[in-house]
Computed example of a mutant assay.
Amino acid sequence: MARDNALDSPARRGRAQPKQSRDRFGRFTEWIARAMGTPTFLALLTLFCVAWIAWNSLMPAGVRFDEVSNGFTALTLVLSLQASYAAPLILLAQNRQDDRDRVQIEQDRQRAERNLADTEYLAREVVALRMAMTDLVEQSLSRDVLRQELRTLLAELDDRAALEPGERPATDGGAAKKESR
């Protein structure tokens, strides 16, 4: 028992088909435009025209289908028809390429904006790190100065403790005086 709406088969929607056929036609126009812009195409078209002219000039009159006396009217018609179809197909291919280029330019612009924002963010972070490092160095220097001061004070306290109980160390560069009670 096969069901059309089974879970293992894709859902069918009528809207997907026109887009696919438009895309297929667009790819076809691009293929034509690429093919017509090649030296191979020009060589084949030249060979076609030479063969046409040679057939209608050199073959017996009963097998000719385009008379020289009429100026190869059928050849002119075929080449005009080819040109009248080639021009719009090439334009369609160019329009598709323009659309792709427009999308690519928009994506490049968005990527450039993101890169700029990232660069600005990183620049701010670098400045913040520099400031933090400067503060850290200043704090380190002030810590070193503070440590040195504390060491000096500790040394003075050690000197005081080493003195006799009644003596006081000189702070003004003079001799130590005895404390009077």
Rank of each mutant, 00 (worst) to 15 (best):
E156K: 15
A176T: 14
P169Y: 03
R147A: 13
A161T: 10
M133K: 08
L154N: 13
V137F: 01
R151W: 02
G174C: 06
D144E: 14
A132G: 03
E164R: 11
E138V: 05
L157C: 08
L146N: 09
E149W: 07
L163N: 02
L157I: 06
D158K: 15
L141Q: 09
Q148I: 02
T134W: 03
G166A: 10
A170L: 00
D159H: 15
T171C: 00
R147S: 06
T152V: 13
Q139H: 08
L154V: 12
L154E: 14
A175P: 01
V137Q: 10
T134S: 10
S142L: 13
L150F: 06
L163D: 03
D135Q: 07
G174Y: 07
A155H: 10
G173W: 01
L146T: 10
S140G: 13
K177M: 15
K177V: 15
L154F: 11
D144K: 04
R168L: 08
T134L: 14
R151T: 05
L141C: 02
L136I: 05
D144A: 07
T152I: 13
R143K: 07
Q139M: 13
A170Y: 00
R151Q: 10
L163V: 04
R147H: 06
A155G: 07
R143H: 06
P169R: 05
A175N: 13
R160C: 14
M133T: 05
Q148V: 05
L141F: 05
D172Y: 02
L163G: 02
D172G: 03
K177N: 12
V137L: 08
L157H: 07
V137H: 01
L150Q: 07
A155P: 01
A175D: 11
G166C: 09
D135L: 10
V137M: 03
G173Y: 00
P165R: 07
S140Q: 13
E167V: 11
G174Q: 09
D159S: 14
E164P: 03
D135A: 04
R160L: 15
A175S: 12
E164D: 14
D144N: 05
Q148E: 09
R143T: 03
L163F: 05
D172Q: 02
R147F: 07
A155C: 09
A162G: 01
E164W: 04
D158S: 15
E164L: 07
Q139A: 08
A132Y: 01
M131C: 07
R160S: 14
L154A: 13
R160G: 07
A170D: 02
